[in-house]
């Protein structure tokens, strides 16, 4: 399902992964200086709208993924109310003789919303970028060494096998009469064979890569070319406008 979303024919899916990554880091950096409620709220709503419309991601799925972050964000609120750096003066009500001040609730909500903004921008990136295009653009545009890029992709392709390997280890335990479910204390009995299998597979993969002439050099022809396109100009322009309006203008 994730793969289907990442390769959908929508605007965000066609934007160059490096630009999306750069915009993600920019938003993170800009949010560090924000302590009011309205700007994170505006960014959050805007991001959700952009992902839903320009990325054609179902709104229901998006909100469902953000829901756990609401809980995570709420922890910022109560922590801010109970342990503030400085208790506010506008006391709203008392909980067990502890004053609850408006200022602290505001800061808490702002920090909670900030966590949700981070999550929404991460979703914008993750839901619209396929792993292959990400690694390919990092190799081609951001000078990631090809050996690391292809190594990562090989490892990523191996991951679906893990579940199968885990089932094999579990059955092997069972056949030796070691019980059906391993206890938490016996985690090593599952983890060690699992990792040993991964290391063996990795060595075989490295050998196969070398024997097929992979030397990690940049001089090689590529099937997938990750070049900047017209869409990327639009994305960059829109993003700069967004940053200016939300973060730069209120400062001056």
């Amino acid at each position: 399902m994730l793969e289907e979303l990442q390769t959908r024919n929508a605007f965000l899916q066609h934007v160059h992964p490096t630009l999306k990554l750069l915009s993600l880091f920019t938003v993170f950096f800009c949010m560090i200086f924000v302590y009011d409620i309205w700007r994170p709220l505006a960014v959050l709503l805007l991001t959700v709208a952009v992902v839903a419309f320009l990325g054609k991601v179902p709104l229901k799925l998006l909100l469902g993924l953000l829901l756990p972050f609401a809980l995570f964000g709420f922890s910022f609120v109560w922590l801010q109310v109970v342990f503030p750096e400085e208790r506010g003066s506008t006391v709203l009500f008392y909980v067990f003789h502890m004053p609850v001040a408006l200022e602290n609730i505001q800061t808490g909500v702002s920090l909670g919303l900030r966590a949700m903004v981070y999550a929404s921008w991460s979703l914008l990136f993750v839901l619209t970028t396929s792993p292959v295009s990400l690694v390919m653009s990092l190799i081609q545009k951001w000078h990631m060494p090809p050996s690391i890029g292809y190594g990562m992709m090989a490892a990523y392709r191996f991951l679906p096998q893990l579940r199968e390997e885990l089932a094999v280890i579990r059955r092997a335990r069972q056949i030796r009469g070691m019980g059906k479910k391993p206890k938490v204390r016996e985690w090593k009995e599952m983890a060690v064979p699992l990792m040993a299998g991964a290391v063996r597979k990795a060595e075989r993969t490295a050998l196969a890569m070398e024997s097929k002439g992979f030397d990690g050099s940049r001089q090689r022809t590529r099937y997938v070319q990750m070049n900047y396109k017209k869409m990327d100009v639009w994305f960059t322009a829109g993003f700069i406008l967004f940053i200016t309006v939300i973060f730069l203008l209120p400062m001056s």
């Binding site: 690391i148 090989a154 990795a202």
Partner: peptide, 24 residues
């Protein structure tokens, strides 16, 4: 070398999945 990189990739990828479960 390449073998180091690929083995590190595989170990880290497995741990990355566990990281993800740990996040929840």
């Amino acid at each position: 070398n390449l073998r180091d990189i690929v083995v590190i990739s595989f170990i880290s990828a497995v741990l990355g999945v566990l990281y993800l479960l740990w996040v929840l």
